[in-house]
Amino acid sequence: MPSCSVNRFEQALRKHGRGELAAERLDTLQVNVGRLCNQVCRHCHVDAGPHQTGADVNMGPEVAAIVERVVRSGAVRVLDLTGGAPELNPSFRRLVEAARDAGVHVMDRCNLSVLLQPGQEDLAAFLADRRVEVVASLPFYRRDRTDRQRGAGVFDQSLLGLRRLNELGYGSRDDLRLNLVYNPTGAFLPGDQHALEREFRRELTDGLGIAFHQLFCITNMPIARFAEWLHRSGNYESYMAVLANAFNPAALEGLMCRNLISVAPDGTLHDCDFNQMLGLPVSAHVPRHIREFDSAVLARRPVVTDSHCLGCTAGAGSSCGGAVT
């Protein structure tokens, strides 16, 4: 939630003698193709769900065509597709094809259950054929905690999705990367990423025969649906204090905003997906829409911050690739 007055992240930077945050390069184009999703998760920072069908919240073919042009230009090394369930956008497969044609690595932020949706029966094979890296959300290795956050039955569907990916070689072959994303199911930080990965491996691999490459631990951002829950449950202030007390200057170097630009469904540019959801565009001194994309300028832009950025610098730090220290 944007703060009314005080930017607590900026306060933390000053306290540790750090200057303003700025990008240092541009490797990744993270494209949020929309809020349409087959799940309704309690922590979702984009308020995604099956009801989000409007043209105002999902990327149309015109903007997707501009994204495709940028990707084909070779301006970035990685295309990171997110949503909602990005696979449900009609432009998803076209963007994947364009990126792979251009030799760009593609990451699909997949909720797993989408692999079982009617009309998506061939999705897993499509991803495997194009060597798309799958970054799959699975908040916990137990049914009760997963279903409490993501909806009844989601854990079992996720396992089915994982097995479908495993059958194609995902999780075991080097060219078919399958990484899992863990996020806490409440107002607490993720524990040590390596230790949690061992726990996930013990339960999922040893216990259920599920193969995966890495576990990414991501801190819940105090925005949108999760912030609403924090307020409702009386946890907001204590959670913000936990994030502020756990501020780790070492995490600043690896922050995703330093090498990534986030594209909204309408083509506007943001420093990250979280800023996008808060309606915070990139600095007014740089291009603010994908049609004006200029990688050299964007690679050196100042980063727009607010109190929620403490979520990315708490403890071991947090990014779309998990812990950053």
Binding site: F140, Y141, R142, G186, L189, G191, D192, A195, L196, F200
Partner: peptide, 12 residues
Amino acid sequence: TKGSLESGADLE
């Protein structure tokens, strides 16, 4: 309680 949740334990 918080440490157990952070390190991956559940309520059971």
